[in-house]
Write a protein that binds this DNA or RNA. Structure first.
Length: 508
RNA sequence: CGGGGAGUAGCUCAGCCCGGUAGAGCACCACGUUUGGGACGUGGGGGUCGGAGGUUCAAGUCCUCUCUCCCCGACCA
């Protein structure tokens, strides 16, 4: 719960309001500019997305928060199926010995493992780990499922929870337990695996851009930032409103590393035995944190229409007499019925004892992208006042043509959020040539800098600037990802020869 | 794991220095008047003061120990 100790003075509608200290869910929101971390916590509380759990690092997802995840699931799941991916489910508990099979994998994950040593009243002969990811148990299984080239490609996904013991948890962004999907595929050739990993990256990029409106930078991680056990890791790096990066999804080309560790081979058309090539890819509840940090403002959360728990909030404005009030209520109910039938998530705010203004603020805090006000004057004119959350613009929409008008407005909101995020990121991404420019750039956003590709240099950059190499950025052209053209010159940090530019930024 | 804070009503806090019947604002419940950008009146409910031990006639307050949470850094989807 946020510690709101100040009295916020907010200018609103031309008058100064002094807002008293209040309950977290109803209280003032710390301005983004004065304390970004506190602002983040405040808007989560205001939108009632999570509640505190009894275990540190864990959060309860309240209906609003979980609703966003459900919307993400629906959208991604459709995309996966379109690519021929099938859902399956593998167990939560994994024998500890599995984790140790792939050398880098162990090294990468052992510090974060939760281990079960006792069960059924006895000490276990072999401890079980709570999955931090499922490569090991899946590849132990695929050994039985893959015999012939005809079994490939094998495209699996699972919706699951995983546990990684985190030193410093933050709601959505870094939680001990989190929800995600993890895709795992098996291919006959390294080229097939690479191609699929990139197809998935493109799928994620489209989702992040069109659905979450995050306008991410897309690219490949440098070697030292790869997933433990991968030969290549591809990433989405949207920029948050404080200029920091959030890794919002990854797709890995695992080469034959896991197949080798779990001894998985297939018999080819040539009759010989061949290694199997793998990918894995995931998007987690962390992206919800990204949506909050990318779009929210000082009034609270702003959700892109397709993932908003409530897309349209209808606020009836009572009339002076009972008859007009009843007419307003009827019009609100009718509007809700029509919009719900059209597939929208709609709430009518019928709470008694609250004035319309209080309800306007309420739904703004909760991030509803569109508000419809219906009062006696609107009923007379057969219209509603539509207010878009992200820019506060008011429009009149006809009650007779409400469904197409709302669909149109929600589409406009989506486009504008996406455009706004892209413009923000582009304005705060600077090509830099030397240390001074790099240091300045990462305090505002991303630096596009030549880098010598040495880990030690990256570590020095991080030690001094707190920024990390986010990725080698890609461009989507002619239906495929292309790295930036080589651009030889001195490394922006150490001056040694470099051939490529990377995105450098501070990250969550 | 290092460095800082903080634990008293659902929330934000006061009370502690100087021990003496548990407080405020907001929230919540009821009724009434209101209602186009955060309404008001009247009445009401709500607490083993994070936990354990100690000092004392008496502990929210003093002493000792302990637990938890938050913020800042190193590890991470």
């Amino acid at each position: 719960m946020p510690a709101i100790m100040h009295q916020a003075i907010a200018e609103h509608a031309g008058i100064l309001l002094i807002m008293a200290e209040q309950q977290a869910t109803e209280g003032p929101i710390t301005p983004r500019a004065s304390d970004y971390a506190q602002w983040y916590q405040d808007i989560i509380a205001a939108a009632e997305l999570v509640d505190q759990a009894p275990v540190r690092g864990c959060w309860i997802l309240r209906p609003n928060g979980y609703g966003i995840w459900e919307a993400i699931q629906r959208d991604l799941d459709r995309r996966f199926r379109r690519l021929g991916v099938q859902n399956a489910y593998f167990p939560l508990l994994i024998p500890q010995s599995f984790i140790t099979r792939e050398a880098e994998h162990v090294e990468g994950f052992s510090p974060e493992l939760a281990v079960v040593t006792h069960a059924g009243g006895d000490e276990l002969e072999e401890p079980l780990v709570v999955r931090p990811t499922s490569e090991t148990v899946i590849w132990a299984t695929l050994r039985r499922w893959i015999r012939s080239h005809r079994d490939l490609p094998l495209l699996l996904n699972q919706w699951a929870n995983v546990v990684r013991w985190e030193k410093r948890p933050r709601a959505f962004l870094r939680t001990t337990e989190f929800l995600w999907q993890e895709g795992h595929t098996a291919h006959a050739t390294p080229e097939d695996a690479r191609r699929f990993a990139l197809t998935m990256l493109r799928t994620y990029e489209d989702f992040a851009d069109q659905v979450l409106c995050l306008a991410p930078i897309v690219g490949e991680k440098p070697a030292h930032e790869r997933f433990p056990g991968a030969v290549a890791t591809f990433t989405l790096e949207p920029m948050m409103q404080d200029g920091r990066a959030l890794q919002a999804g990854t797709s890995h080309d695992l080469g034959a590393n896991f197949a080798r560790a779990f001894d998985v081979t297939y018999q080819g058309e040539d009759g010989a035995s061949h290694p199997v090539y793998a990918t894995s890819w995931g998007v987690s509840t962390r992206t919800i944190g990204g949506v909050l940090m990318a779009h929210g403002d000082d009034r609270g959360a702003i959700f892109p229409p397709s993932v908003a728990p409530t897309q349209v909030a209808i606020v009836p404005v009572p009339g002076r007499d009972e008859a007009s009030t009843r007419a307003v209520e009827a019009a609100a109910a009718e509007a809700q019925a029509q919009l719900t039938a059209a597939g929208h998530r709609v709430a009518v705010d019928n709470r008694p004892g609250l004035r319309p203004g209080a309800k306007f603020f309420h739904w703004e805090r909760r991030g509803a992208p569109l508000r419809l006000e219906i009062g006696p004057r609107d009923v007379d004119a057969n219209q509603a006042v539509a207010v878009t959350r992200h820019d506060g613009q008011k429009r009149r929409v006809p009650l007779s043509g409400l469904v197409p008008a709302v669909a149109d407005l929600l589409g406009t909101v989506r486009t504008e959020l996406s455009t706004r995020a892209r413009a923000f990121r582009e304005a705060r991404t600077k090509a830099v040539e030397d240390r001074a420019e790099l240091e300045a750039a990462v305090t505002e956003g991303y630096a596009l800098a030549r880098w010598c590709e040495r880990k030690s240099c990256a570590e020095e950059i991080q030690a001094v600037t707190r920024a990390t190499i986010r990725c080698y950025p890609f461009e989507w052209r002619d239906d495929r990802y292309l790295p930036l053209p080589d651009d030889p010159g001195p490394c922006a940090w150490c001056g040694e020869p470099a051939t490529r530019r990377v995105i450098i930024g501070r990250a969550y």
